[in-house]
Design a binder for these strands. Structure first.
Lengths: 116, 116, 116, 116
DNA sequence: TTTT
DNA sequence: TTTT
């Protein structure tokens, strides 16, 4: 994957325990939400928090690390690429989703850096 | 904006001339699609192209640069952050979109580097 | 500063308490070493640690945050640009140094995210 | 290599034809200077150019691409990691150098995108 | 919808 | 030493 052409990096907190799917091939897929929080002061000088939620997907070895270490609330770094895809929802409506396909995970604030 | 917490970088080609909106405030908004192309060889040794399409939004000065220089087909670099938002479509269905809010544009392969 | 043209990002541990210089202008400069640690297994399956040391320089507001929060041993993220410069050492030998000029600092593994 | 822990990205122009070394193993090493140019206006409104020179090193397949396509003056993107090392110069003085070890090269402004 |  |  080219980090020059398509690269995303996020540092934030895992929204809930990742959903793990075991494929027939034996490969794992992990899927979860990550919150990135930015803080700024508005014109009144009040501290405002802006939270952005991202959907993260990971495959194989990266999914295994997520399953083991990246539980709800954990602070992690994610690097990967932006991917979009479409599907039909249960009402037959075409939906588009954009996800970050993670190929790297970094556990933060951890003494034993059991990251990828 | 924190590039450590939420950062996207893309290099690709502009899909069509950007749509420019002039806000009442006098500020401009630019919106366009960017294609990032990756190439790989499949197991048969055939060259495969994988194109990903991204929605880019830019405000103010960055939008002005896009309007002037980033026409259809142009090769550009984009840096910014990932943002998601929801809206109701014309049938009242709630839709979610994820966009890259560009705060930096780089014109590539250009003799006169009139980039940001 | 263009993150597309010249961008560095590091996550690691502060080597020693940053050296703070107060300029006559009242501006601060912070200078410190940051260690980035990578782990891999060699051909014998032994876990090897590879530590890279980086010189970080920061000015103004970023230097103040470093002075307050980025003491020895702290895990932080740094984003900025690569800069090189030359000087003459005490023996009159011309020396070249390459530094990361940080314009962003993120404190990691901290409950109260008092980062920039 | 972890792009979260140690990542550099540059877009600029090749200073001179890369120096290629053929190792006994058959592997190639490429070494060259890359200029990144930033422009700003000073307080008098004059356009100022600030050029930063970087030393780039690449191994193996990346070195081969550089040898073929990244000649003097070419506009390229480089992604990789920051590495420092020391050596003794011809006068026995210990010297330190910081280099960008490229693991990705992108040829820009090229009709035939024969990049990595 | 781009580009190669 | 590049490029604009």
């Amino acid at each position: 994957m080219s980090t020059l052409k398509n690269h995303v990096q996020l540092i934030g907190n895992v929204g809930q325990d990742p959903q793990i799917t075991n494929l027939e091939s034996g490969k794992k897929v992990a899927r979860f939400s990550l919150a990135t929080n930015e803080f700024y002061k508005n014109e009144k000088g009040e501290k405002i928090q802006n939270t952005e939620w991202h959907t993260i997907v990971a495959w194989g070895k990266t999914a295994e690390i997520i399953e083991k270490y990246a539980g709800k609330g954990k602070e992690i770094g994610v690097a990967g690429k932006l991917k979009s895809r479409s599907y039909e929802d249960k009402d037959g409506v075409k939906r588009y989703v954009t996800e970050v396909e993670a190929n790297e995970i970094l556990l933060l604030g951890v003494k034993n850096g059991d990251s990828q």
